[in-house]
Structure formats: C-alpha cells, structure tokens
C-alpha cells in the first residue's frame, strides 16, 4: 500500500507547477525574437493545459472508482454544444461558460447514478465498455441534432484581438483560456488538499472500505467526484469549442492525448497529469512546427521514452493500478 501523502507535499508540488510554468513562459519570452517558435510554444502550453484538464478529470474518476471514462470526450462535446445553443439564442458567453458545464454535470451525474454505479463492484473492463458505448451513442445523437459538420462558435468580441505584453502579442482568447485553466487546476488542488471533502476523497482513493467504515457515505463521494471530473470536462469543452472548433467528434479528439497524458504523468498522480499535459502539448505543437506529419506520433514517442526510463510514468506510484 502506498503511504499517505501529506498536504505540504502537494503545496510544494503546486509551487513547482507555478515555477515550472513560469520557466516555460520565460523560454517563450527568450525565444520571442523567433516569432514562429514562441507562438508555437505558447500554443503548445495552451494545448497542454487542455490536455491537463481533461486528464485531471479522467484521473479523478479513474483513481477513485477504477473507471476509465471513455465518454469523457462526449461530455466535453455536449458542454460545447449546450454553450453553442445558448449563445446562438442570444445568451451571453460568460453565462454559457458557467451554465453549460453545470448542465453537463447534471447529465453526467444521472449517467453515473443509473448506469455506471452498478458496475463499481465489477471488473473495470465493464465500466470501460459501457462508457465506450455511451460515447458512440452520444456522437450519433450530436450528429442528428447539430449535423455532421462543425458549427461556428466564436469567442465573444471582448476576447477577440490580441493582447500586447511588450515583447510579443498573444491572442486574447488563448491567454484567457490559459488563465481559466490555470485557475481551475489551482482550485482543484486547493479543494483536494484544503477541504474536508477533498481529504475524504483522497483517503477513499487509498482505501474506500476504511473510509466507509469510518462513517463516510462513499456513494456520495463517488457521485461528487464524478461530477467534479465532468465539470472540468465541461469547462474545457466550452473553451475548446471556441478554440478548436465544435463537431460531433471534437471532444473525442482530445481524449487520446489525455490518455497519453495520464500514462506519461503516471497513473494515480494528479500532479503527473498536469506535468504530462504540458509536456504532451509542447511536444505536439513543436513537432507541428518542424515535422508536421509526425505531430500525432510525437506524443506516443514521448510516451515510449518516458515508459522506457520510468515504467510507472513520471509521477506514478509503484504498485498502484498494477
């Protein structure tokens, strides 16, 4: 059994994230004379933040219940489409950014309570297959409602244009996305380390039977944990819709990099998901710059290298998840 991880370690890790991201941004500035490279680096960071958020949601669900949520991408797409439906009916973007993920969470909790819950006692392959089936159905349903082609979903005028920071200018929407995703990562870390509920969640990951015996309703934990993962997916889904486009499969295209992110970061480690996301994002965008044809394969190559050196991933705990 792995040892308990004190909160201070997590605070240290949080500091490491901030320092690490700061260092990466510094590289961007240093290289800013070469406009192309710095742009790709920045894009890579934003992309990496997406992967990290999706991977975080996946890891939360996977760590506690052993469910590989294959429908995670579908929830992202759903949230994107809900936001699109609201905005195209005249709702304000900011409202949609909050409400669409919440509506997605409601759908997610319904699915978890009715369909996934009966499978918690069984082998993980069953919940994996179930969510896989759900994602197939969802894709076709989006197809029927919103059509096979992408729908236009653009960020609000206030986020259009660029923001100049002296050395270089960033597209405002990308900067906004980076900010929101960073805030969400920080909020999750604080929630897990500084609230009673977060502590229970982490304790349940280690030994859910013991937590149940100590008087915590583990079903509530499972539900809230799932909701949390879906909420992350939902927010990422709306932002991704504005940045990467919105079509029935758009969420699923982020799912595979998120899996690779989890593997690189190490299963069981939320911190690993964040670092892994940034690495995968950078690897993908930098390869796009130099060898466009290899952009998808780059992250798998990175994964193979990481696994060769560290079979459990960068921050994975040995023994956990076989």
């Amino acid at each position: 059994m792995q040892t308990a991880r004190p909160g201070s370690t997590i605070a240290l890790r949080l500091a490491a994230i901030v320092v690490g991201l700061g260092a990466l941004l510094a590289i961007v500035f240093l290289l800013s004379k070469n406009g192309q490279v710095s742009t790709q680096l920045f894009n890579g960071l934003v992309l990496g933040a997406f992967y990290a958020i999706v991977a975080l949601g996946l890891s939360l669900i996977m760590n506690l219940t052993g469910t590989i949520n294959m429908a995670h991408g579908s929830f992202m797409t759903l949230s994107g489409y809900l936001a699109f439906a609201m905005v195209s009916r005249g709702t304000n973007f900011w409202f949609a950014l909050i409400v669409a993920p919440l509506m997605t969470v409601i759908v997610g909790v319904l699915v978890e309570r009715t369909l996934i819950r009966p499978l918690y006692q069984k082998e993980p392959i069953y919940s994996l297959l179930l969510t896989f089936g759900l994602s197939l159905m969802a894709e076709e349903i989006y197809h029927i409602i919103w059509g096979a082609n992408g729908v236009p979903f653009s960020p609000p005028p206030s986020l259009a244009g660029t923001v100049g920071l002296g050395f270089m200018s960033f597209p405002a929407f990308r900067l906004f996305i980076a900010l929101v995703l960073l805030l969400m990562i920080a909020a999750i870390a604080l929630f897990l380390t500084r609230t009673r509920f977060g502590l229970r969640l982490r304790a349940a990951v280690q030994d859910s039977e013991m937590i149940a015996a100590l008087g915590t309703n583990t079903q509530v934990l499972y539900m809230v944990n799932f909701a949390l993962g879906i909420f992350l997916a939902g927010v990422a889904g709306v932002l991704a819709a504005g940045l990467l486009g919105l079509n029935p499969t758009s969420g699923n295209t982020l799912l595979m990099p998120a899996f690779v992110t989890v593997i690189i970061g190490g299963m069981g480690s939320l911190f690993g998901s964040i670092v892994g996301g940034v690495l995968v994002g950078l690897a993908t965008s930098l390869t796009t710059l130099w060898i466009p044809a290899a952009s998808e394969v780059a992250m798998y190559a990175l994964m193979a290298i990481v696994l060769t050196i560290r079979p459990r991933g960068l921050f994975g705990e040995e023994g956990l998840f076989g």
């Binding site: 590989i68 899996f259 394969v297 798998y300 696994l307 998840f321 076989g322």
Partner: peptide
Amino acid sequence: RRGIYFGLLSIAFGQVFYFIAYR
C-alpha cells in the same frame, strides 16, 4: 502492467500504428 493500466497502454500503443498508416 495489469488491469486498467494495461488497457490504457494498449489503447495508446495501438493508436501509434493507426497514425502511421494515416500519415
């Protein structure tokens, strides 16, 4: 690896061949 870790790895490594054929 065993269990879901094996599952994730097999998805990811299988996908490499897909992208090679695709690209």
